[in-house]
Structure formats: structure tokens, C-alpha cells
């Protein structure tokens, strides 16, 4: 159980391990992108952790990085093709960010730090926990950035219910703080959240 829950808070990939920040800060302009990117990353993370855990005795130490990159890049390309074929709307809205999962340090980081020295079952649990922690962190950053920066919360549209996917926040939508949707806003939100989490952990430590 510890393997599964550690990624959510204690070893949260964004706020504690501080891994994979570039794509994370780039996509969090809308909540829907945070969810899409988080779930996509979790899929690649689970597949690559399984594969690397299975191959750990086959891959010699000297070539482990290129071998991991081949495995990760293959799964990202598979995800990209499957999304283009079966969920074209999500694929169009995430655009170039799907390909960016390849260079997300979380995936290579977990392969290197965990899957290469643990069994398949533990590696799957690690991947799910890290994936959930990553997705929740992205959604939290995106929620703050989008509501302050654009005055909206964008989710998936549900046509049968007539829900367009966009919730407008009265008051903020007419006068949003535009800087929050830009790169500077991403760093500001990240910095404040990291500080808050450090403070909580410090208090716990005392």
C-alpha cells in the first residue's frame, strides 16, 4: 500500500521530487489539459515501468539510459497514435504536449530509481501512485491558474447533457489576471504551492 500512496503526497513528483516541471508548467493553462496530460503520463509511466522491470536483467548497466529512452519513446508514440485515432478531440487540444511526455523526467526518473531494481507488481503500484500524484498536482496548478488567469474552468464537454465544458466564474471572467496563464504565472503558482507544502512538512517534522 505504501508504494501506491507515497506518490500522492510524501514523494509527490511535482512538489517533493520536483521532476518533470517544464511540460507540467506549460500545459496547466486549462484544467482539461492537466487531466489529459496527467492521464497520458500515467499510461506511459505504467507501461514503461512494467517493461523496464521485466527487462532489468536483460539490459546491461552501460546501455540502460538509451534502452529506457527507446522503451519510453515507443510507448509515447503508441499513446499519440491511439489518441489521434480514437479520441481526436483530446489529441487536438493537447497537441504537441503528448510528444513532450518523452522528455518528462518523471518517467525516466521512476524507471531509473524504482523499476530497474524492483519487481513488476511493485513497479506497477509505484507508477499508479506517481501517476495519480502527478495528475492531482497538475489539476491543482491548472485550477488556480485558469480560474485567476481566465476566469473559467475548462473540463471535457458532455454533449448529451448540453454541457459545453466551460464553467465561467462570475466577476473573474470579465477582469482576469492574464499573467496567471502566462509562464510567469505558472512559476508563481508553483512557487507558492511548493512553499506551502514545505511549511506543512516542516511543522510535521517538529
Amino acid at each position: 500500500m505504501k508504494e501506491l500512496t507515497k506518490g500522492i503526497y510524501r514523494e509527490n513528483p511535482i512538489f517533493v521530487l520536483v521532476l518533470g516541471l517544464c511540460p507540467s508548467l506549460a500545459v496547466t493553462t486549462q484544467v482539461v489539459n492537466g487531466i489529459g496530460m496527467g492521464v497520458g503520463t500515467m499510461f506511459v509511466l505504467i507501461c514503461s515501468n512494467i517493461m523496464i522491470s521485466l527487462l532489468k536483467n536483460v539490459i546491461p548497466n552501460e546501455i540502460h539510459i538509451p534502452a529506457y529512452i527507446v522503451v519510453i519513446a515507443s510507448f509515447v508514440t503508441i499513446l499519440d497514435l491511439l489518441m489521434q485515432a480514437y479520441v481526436p478531440a483530446l489529441s487536438a487540444s493537447l497537441g504537441v504536449f503528448v510528444q513532450l511526455i518523452v522528455v518528462n523526467c518523471i518517467i525516466l526518473g521512476r524507471a531509473e530509481a524504482y523499476a530497474s531494481s524492483h519487481g513488476v507488481w511493485d513497479s506497477i503500484k509505484d507508477a499508479i501512485g506517481m501517476g495519480i500524484g502527478f495528475t492531482l498536482s497538475l489539476v491543482l496548478i491548472a485550477l488556480i491558474r485558469e480560474s485567476l488567469g481566465a476566469g473559467t474552468i475548462t473540463l471535457f464537454p458532455i454533449e448529451s447533457l448540453g454541457f459545453s465544458g466551460e464553467i465561467s466564474i462570475p466577476g473573474l471572467v470579465d477582469a482576469p489576471a492574464r499573467v496567471m496563464t502566462l509562464s510567469a504565472g505558472a512559476l508563481l503558482v508553483m512557487g507558492y504551492l511548493k512553499a506551502a507544502i514545505n511549511r506543512v512538512n516542516e511543522r510535521k517534522g517538529r
Partner: peptide, 24 residues
């Protein structure tokens, strides 16, 4: 070993591509 890993990856990608290309 590296060439083997790459070939398996290439085969898998070729298969997924041939499956999804008509849909795309």
C-alpha cells in the same frame, strides 16, 4: 541487446501504426 530492443519497439510501432492509420 540494444539492437534487439530497438527492433521489438519498431515492430510494435509498425503494428500500432498500421492499425490506427486508416482511422486517422
Amino acid at each position: 541487446r540494444l539492437a534487439l530492443i530497438c527492433s521489438v519497439a519498431a515492430l510494435l510501432l509498425g503494428f500500432v501504426d498500421s492499425m490506427t492509420a486508416p482511422q486517422i
